[in-house]
Simulated assay, not measured.
Amino acid sequence: MQTEAAFGVGCIVPEVVGAKDVEEWKSGVHATLEAIPAIRDLELENISRGFAPKSGITPWGESKEFTPEAGVMKFRITIPSRVQSGLRASRKVGDTEDFIVRTYFNHRHPVTFVICDGADASLRTPSMSLVVVREFLKREIGKLQGDQTRIRKLGPSPFHGNFYLAAGSQGEQLVDGISVDVKERPGYHDFRFCYEQGSTSLGNALEFVFAWLIPEISAFYRVKIDSAKRMKRATSTVGLAEGLADTYAQRGVIAYFRRVFRNKRDLLGLRLSLLQAKLTAVNELRADEDLISSVYADRSVRIIHPYTHKGLSETFEAELETAEKTLDILESQHTQEVQRVTTFCASLLGVVVGALLTAWLRR
């Protein structure tokens, strides 16, 4: 009887191109996954609602496809070691060839657990099971001609940790009979859950651990996605500033007058981009703080909290500050150039008017 388990945590979500509702999504996923011989025992449980974005933006990042917001997708999959070696950088999950995949959908972010079937707590890298399963699915789906399903990677997947469950007692107690101990290591940390063998079974303990982790992991992904959005906006804003700065390195009369007459609009666009980036970041950070407070309100043990909270510090204020300083310099330069052109035009107009008056008076 097995008393230990090793699993990876991340996010593997099938997307069905063009699916508009739950039934179309379920039909597409069933047809695709059941066409892969390595997959068995496929179940789509309680998937009753979902989100079909019109703008291409979902709570889980950019996508134009339907994504469930409730329920769970389960299946077993066999990937021989020789196949694993050829998937991605020759990465294997020890000697494990059988995996149990569960993706839990919720309104915050989907969460996937990949259990290394038959493995125990001595397995070094159960987190790699996410990579192996995802890459295998992508390869096999790619072989299906005309198939409209694709595997979408959401958030950092796998989560940078190796997860284990074994009989015993160590670390902080979550509830009576189940505890957790987090070991920080170079690279991926170890999350070791323990259960009292006399009070519960491995299966029940695993279900409890999943239920405990889902809110924390989904919140982590939500915060990371908002962080990625802030980085994208900051990078875009800095790019606009650099592009405008390059125009001032150009020489010649044509380049000079182009800056005078065109850059005002671009400078205004950069100013608006900066303001939007700052305002959106404030709203995102406030929402993320509320989310974290909600998830951990009744939890004395905060397993994923340090990793989630770190995402709040990823504000990219330094990048926006650099863009703003660049903008201030460029606006000052543009004002000076406009003043020079205005002065020149006024002087030229004065000369022309003076010459005309002189010519008229001499008639």
Results as ranks from 00 to 15, higher is better:
F113C: 07
Y195H: 06
I12F: 06
T335A: 13
S90P: 02
P37K: 09
G94K: 09
D226G: 09
A355V: 12
R233K: 15
T235P: 01
G177T: 12
V9A: 06
V295T: 11
I225K: 12
I47Y: 06
R262T: 06
H334F: 01
T358V: 13
S199G: 05
G18C: 11
T247C: 01
T237R: 00
E97T: 15
V353F: 11
Y248V: 00
E4A: 15
G161D: 12
Q2C: 03
R76K: 14
I225M: 14
S201A: 06
L33K: 03
E216L: 07
D290F: 09
L165D: 08
S227G: 10
G86I: 08
I225V: 10
R233C: 04
G168A: 14
T235H: 03
M128H: 15
F316N: 03
R299D: 04
E289A: 08
I12N: 03
L144M: 13
C345W: 09
R222W: 05
L144H: 08
A297V: 08
H334N: 04
W360Q: 14
P186C: 01
V93D: 13
F99T: 14
I151T: 09
S48W: 05
D288G: 02
Q173V: 15
K232V: 08
L330P: 03
A119W: 12
V72W: 05
E62Y: 14
V22L: 01
A6Y: 03
I115H: 10
F208Q: 07
T247Q: 00
N106Y: 04
D41Y: 11
P110N: 07
K153A: 14
R363K: 13
A219T: 03
S294F: 08
K325V: 05
E216M: 04
D41T: 12
S227V: 03
A167N: 10
R259A: 01
L275D: 02
R124C: 10
L267N: 00
L206S: 09
V223A: 14
N263S: 05
N283V: 01
G239F: 00
K143M: 11
D226I: 01
M1H: 09
F75D: 07
S236C: 03
K325C: 04
L202E: 08
G10Q: 06
C345P: 05
Q336T: 15
L291S: 03
V223T: 07
V133P: 06
L244S: 01
Y195R: 02
T125P: 05
E97G: 13
D246V: 02
S273L: 00
Q148S: 15
V132C: 05
S90I: 04
K325H: 11
T280A: 03
D21M: 05
E242Y: 03
A19G: 07
Q250A: 12
L356G: 06
M1V: 15
A70N: 13
V238W: 01
R40Y: 04
R150G: 10
